[in-house]
Every structure is written in C-alpha cells, then in structure tokens.
Design a protein around this nucleic acid. Structure first.
Lengths: 229, 229
DNA sequence: CGCGAGCTTGACGTTGTTCAACTAGAGTGG
DNA sequence: CCACTCTAGTTGAACAACGTCAAGCTCGCG
C-alpha cells in the first residue's frame, strides 16, 4: 500500500494549500503519506467514521455527500484532482461529517490528520492556505444552497451542467461519470425529473447526449436558464 | 465610537476562539478593537462589501443571510452572543460572502481583519481554534441544508423552534425576535406557510403564542415532527 | 382616531413527486 | 452465441405539497 512512488516536492498537481510549501516541508509530507487506489464507486471516506486522514485527490474525481436518515443521499460537491477531502474534520469532531466516493478510478494520497494539524500549528502561511481552502468551499456551498432551494428544477440542472463543463471536466464535451440518480442527489430533485429535463435540453438542441457522453452546444443558453429560471 | 470600555482579558463571554488566548494576547485584541452599537434591524455587515473586520457579538443576537438576485433573502444562521461574524472572509475573497443584521440592539466588537490574520499566522493554537469555529459552522450549515431541501415544511419549522429554544434563547419560553418573514427566509418557505404551521402547532397545544412570546409546551413532539416529517 | 406594516386565512394554480409500466444495455452462465 | 437477469434510464398519468394571490385583520404608533 505505502508505495511512496509519488514525489510530493515535484508534484505538479499541487493543491492551493501545498503550492506554497517549501521543498523540505513537502518532503515531510512525502514520507508521511500513504498512496491509495480506489475503483469507481468505492467509498473513500465514510460519514461518521473516525477522521484519521486528510485525503488528497491525485488522480480521478470524487463526490462528497451527506447520508441522511431517510436513505436519500445528498451530494455536496464534485471534486476534481488537486482537491482535499476531510478539511472540515480538522480540529473539530473526530469524525468525517460526510462520505466520499470515487466517480472514476482514483489515486488518493492519505495524510495523517494529526500530522496535518501539527503542520498547521507550526506554519502560519500553511494555516492561512488551509483556511483559504476551507473558506472557498464554504462560499461554494452557499451558492449550491441558494440554487437548490430557490431555483426551479431546470435552472439547477443547467447550473450543474455549466459547472461540470467549466470546473470539473474543463471541456464542452465530456464523459459524464455521474448517474441520473447522482445528478438528482446533487440538485435535490427526483431522478425522473433529471431525465425529463435532460430530454428537454436535448430536444431543444442545447446539449447533445450519446450514452454517457455529453456535449454542451449552447452554454450561454444554459447560463440564462440557470439565472432566469 | 472607539470607547474601549470592554476589557478583553476579563471578558467572560469569550468565544471558543478567544477562550484559549493568554491575557497578554487578549490585551492586544483590546487595543485593536472598536466597540459598535447597532439598533434592532440595522445592517452589521453587507454582502459584497470589503471585509475589513471580524465582528464579535458581545451582546444581542444577529442573523446572517445571503442576498440573492431575486429579492428573496436567505437566512444562513442566527448567532447568539459570543459568536464571530466574518470568518469565511479570512484569507479569501476580500468581501463578505453574506450580510448580517441585528435582531435586537447589539454591542459588537470589530477587530481588523489584517490584525486577526496576523494573529492566526503567528499563533498556532489560535489558528486551530479559528479553524474549529469555522468547521463547526460548516457542519451546522450541512444540517440546515438537509432540513431545508429534504424535509416537509412543518419539519423545518419544528426544527427551527427547537434550535431557537435550545441554542439561542436557552429557555422554553422566549420573546421571538424573528418576524414571520425571517422564519420563512430561514426555512425556505413562503411567509404564509410559516403562519399556517405555527397556527397548527398552537391549535395542537405543542406551543403557546402570545404576541411575540413563544412557549414550547412539548419539545419532544416538536423533535418528532422535525425527524418524522 | 386613523394609518400602515405585519400577520392571518381561504381559494386556487403550479410545480414537482410518486407510482407504475416499459425499455435499453451490461454482465452471467449455459 | 443466446436467453436471462439486473440495474439504470425513460415516459406517462395521478396526485400532493406548497406557493401565489387577494382580502381582511390586529396592533403599535403617531
């Protein structure tokens, strides 16, 4: 498991946090990390389990989600490579507040949370970067919250498609690794509604769908739908 | 304005963050803070404005809310005294991501954000406490998010009443400083729905209402409603 | 005493969920 | 190579929850 093939000081995929660390600090990360492979669909961390690690997405993309008592999950965010999982567990509850699962085969670096915390306390610049990461995610959460409580269904889905294209897959054509049900749990609607709205977008020529492949034809129209309703 | 009547080292209302600071550190806070009075309804900080201060609620309670393009606000949280406003602006966007307004007359200590940030970078334990504060609020946001997207209206309102009684007013009888509209913006429903559900609770004897005074008669029943539906 | 904001109540319309039937495609074993 | 099954996705119809609109009410305040 602990293969240490990845070399942190030379890692080009550094997250916001790590990008400001000096090489000798990154060397400390290197020897203190584990490299883990997850297959598509596998659980990376489990809500309620002891939060023993901060997890860095080296390769692949991940969904984080809340599990509710009512067997209906609630996707918080889709994270691309370079992002960290588990920051909300720092210095607080000893458990993960959400679960995370691999959307594709993933390569994850696991860093012991105690090590991470000591690093924060001993390195003010690093602390500031961690806080910056956390705060960025808070603001994204606010946005999602407003969308999923105040906008009609097609607006939510339009927004999610724009977000996937722009921030996650970084292309107007992509292989969607989320199921209809995932999209429903992300946008807080019934899976049937996802299907209906996607069909509608397709019929109107705004997107093209071929199996799992999606192509955004008219991103401006999608943006308008997400804002106007 | 800058009266410095309040003496930080002896302040008994210390928030989680400040409670672990040594007296000499708190003395630094004392000389670097402003004391501000706000009347009920006044805006304490404005979404989108330069985030020049972290605001500490010495007295009174506050609502923080998101302003959307659709003239319908969105209350994120109700904060009692001892809480901090503006933490999500640390080290990130230079603007406040939300607005805050006084629910009652308030006494607020304003601490320059640069000063606060320097303090974090130079004091690891303080940094850890700030992260703890931020993370606690994230987890509360998750809870509210689930309630306001997955639970039926009466469940949301029941939850909010329990929360007010237990965490904010700390009594089963309290003078509600939130309007029907505030409650609606907090629980993501129409103000008319708030009225209807409160009437229902009143008729069923779960709560008593006398003008602005509310008395929770059966908190267990409220808890059940918030969980079961 | 009269005004106005906030609150209440009822009737109605819409949005979105639920339920059920059906289809397509992927994996399995003979 | 072909049934066989299982899951994910699609589609339609019925229904419920909730928002909207409009009218009337209450109470604090000038």
């Amino acid at each position: 498991m602990n293969q240490k093939k990845l070399n942190c000081p030379e890692c080009l995929k550094k997250s916001n946090c790590f990008s400001t660390l000096a090489s000798e600090d990154l060397e400390k990360v290197r020897v203190n990390k584990l490299e883990l492979h997850f297959r598509r669909g596998e659980t990376i961390c489990k809500q309620g389990a002891f939060a023993s690690n901060i997890l860095y997405i080296y390769e692949g993309s991940v969904k984080t989600y809340l599990e509710t008592a009512h067997e209906k999950n609630n996707i918080i965010s889709i994270l691309p490579e370079g992002e960290l999982i588990g920051l909300p567990s720092l210095f607080s509850g000893r458990v993960y507040p959400y679960s995370a699962a691999a959307l594709e085969d993933c390569l994850i670096c696991a860093i012991e949370i105690m090590f991470f915390e000591n690093f924060i306390m001993g390195n003010g610049v690093f602390a500031s970067k961690v806080i910056q990461c956390i705060n960025n995610s808070i603001i994204q959460n606010y946005d999602r919250y407003i969308f999923n409580t105040q906008r009609p269904l097609k607006g939510r889905l339009a927004d999610v498609l724009v977000h996937l294209s722009r921030d996650i897959y970084k292309s107007d054509t992509f292989r969607l690794s989320l199921s209809r049900n995932d999209l429903a749990e992300w946008t807080q609607m019934a899976p049937e509604s996802v299907t209906r709205i996607i069909s509608k977008f397709k019929n109107e020529g705004i997107i093209s769908v071929d199996g799992k492949k999606i192509r955004i034809n008219d991103i401006e129209k999608l943006r308008n739908i997400s804002l106007e309703g």
